[in-house]
Amino acid sequence: MIKAKPKPLEEIIDNVKDFNKLLIAGCDGCVTVCEAGGLKEVKILAAALRLYFTQAGKQVQVDEASLTRQCEKEYLAQLSDRMDGYDAAVSLACGVGAQYLAEMYNHKIVFPGVDTCFMGVNEERGLYSERCQACGRCILAETGGICPIARCSKRMLNGPCGGSDKGKCEINPDIPCAWELIYERLKTLGQLDRFERPVEPKDWSTSRDGGPRKIVREDLRI
């Protein structure tokens, strides 16, 4: 899932301090799971902003809402009869949802309330780590199910590099060396021949390098 973390409160306050009617819009999707942008975080942020405005002697209306998903028009449409009542919105969805909210209500200012970080897993509550960079052409079948593009600091396809130390990445001893993991997994799977074969340069055109991406599924479109 997409992982995000709350933006510093002072940054959000700085963005919204001159408005009088605010909507804090959460998303019940990915950001709820990593506790950055669901209904609960909406309530916390709204309460904090109300406290801020009240102690500053300002009467500002801070309302709360959370949508099933902000990355879908049908759910965003649920705000259609309310949005005119606000000067600005803070979206606690990921960068995708925040943009789609702004796109749908393009006469309103939408501020991001979270920093969208990566696609990853919940290792445990409050500990999330990256697993995929959406390169657009999955190579997990060749690498023992471990992605070197997302998990090697140098996205090497023929790792490990000479800087990994005791199975850990050179840039941070808390990060396991992806290629050490891949080697061990391939060994377990009896596929070490894959490790010994040089992997050709990758076609990055399906990744970010190819420009903004789009999927068109004619089989699904009417």
Partner: peptide, 9 residues
Amino acid sequence: KEILDKVGL
């Protein structure tokens, strides 16, 4: 506590 510090309470 952190939030209260930041909102001026």
